[in-house]
């Protein structure tokens, strides 16, 4: 008898783990589709004043993405290409393509609270972490992501608050190894685009730094429209800069 209960219990655990994995997968799909095009505005609050940037982003799968800055005028035309874990940047002012070396990867991207690493390693949420449901309230699920033993990620854990109606998160909290909060993402204004749901307002903030955050407003989102392969070549950096 007890054996049967144990078996049921174990299989339930498995089910739950599978369920968690399923949720994370769907969440991840919502963020990228097969391919995704976004037009967005980024606002950065830094030392009491706000800076605004606009850009267009094209990405396909987890390994290819292309970003082009459209505003402010002084940065217009700067393009980024990340491909298979490498990252290049083209700056029209200096007419150069620069490969971002590994030592610069954890630099803040364009002065925001997002690092180059965040952009390049988007995929890792599914591959590098073991998800576990820690709370369930109706359609709201809290999932804890613990890094797999040898996953090359710095976070001690990530806690996501997901609405399973839309498979979008409302808040992701990143912790260090000792379990202390380091930074969090907040997502709001979920919108349905085709078969996908996506929050159109994001906010990134460090947990212990006041008066400094980065906000992202999605102005346009298109899923699974065939993005030309042209965007994911080094030649695109210059070509689509204009």
């Amino acid at each position: 008898m007890s054996k049967i209960i144990l078996i049921i219990f174990i299989s339930m655990l498995n089910l739950m783990a599978d369920e968690a994995r399923e949720i994370i997968k769907k969440l991840d799909e919502n963020f990228r589709g097969k391919s995704i095009y976004m037009k967005l505005e980024m606002k950065i609050l830094f030392m009491g004043h706000e800076r605004s940037m606009k850009m267009q982003s094209y990405s396909e799968g987890t390994k290819k993405s292309f970003v082009k800055i459209t505003y402010p005028p002084k940065d217009k035309g700067i393009t980024f290409l990340s491909l298979d874990g490498q990252m290049w940047q083209y700056v029209p002012k200096i007419e150069r393509i620069i490969k971002i070396p590994s030592s610069m990867m954890l630099q803040k991207w364009m002065g925001s609270d997002i690092t180059n690493d965040d952009i390049v390693k988007q995929s890792s949420i599914v591959e590098d972490y073991e998800p576990k449901i820690i709370k369930k309230e109706g359609s709201l699920v809290t999932i804890e992501l613990l890094p797999k033993e040898n996953a090359p990620v710095v976070w001690g854990k990530i806690v996501l608050n997901i609405d399973t109606k839309s498979y979008t998160s409302s808040k992701d909290i990143f912790y260090d190894e000792e379990g202390k909060e380091v930074r969090y993402f907040i997502y709001e204004n979920v919108k349905k685009v085709g078969n996908y749901y996506i929050p159109t307002y994001w906010r990134v903030q460090s947990s212990d730094v006041e008066g400094r955050y980065t906000e992202i407003f999605l102005e346009e989102v298109e899923y699974d429209t065939k993005i030309s392969e042209e965007y994911f070549r080094k030649s695109a950096l210059k070509r689509f800069s204009k």
Partner: peptide
């Protein structure tokens, strides 16, 4: 016991990380 991540370019120029 601390975990660290080291990132560098490998022989093909790709940026790789290791825990």
């Amino acid at each position: 016991g601390s975990k660290v991540v080291f990132s560098t370019q490998d022989i093909k120029g790709e940026i790789n990380s290791i825990a």
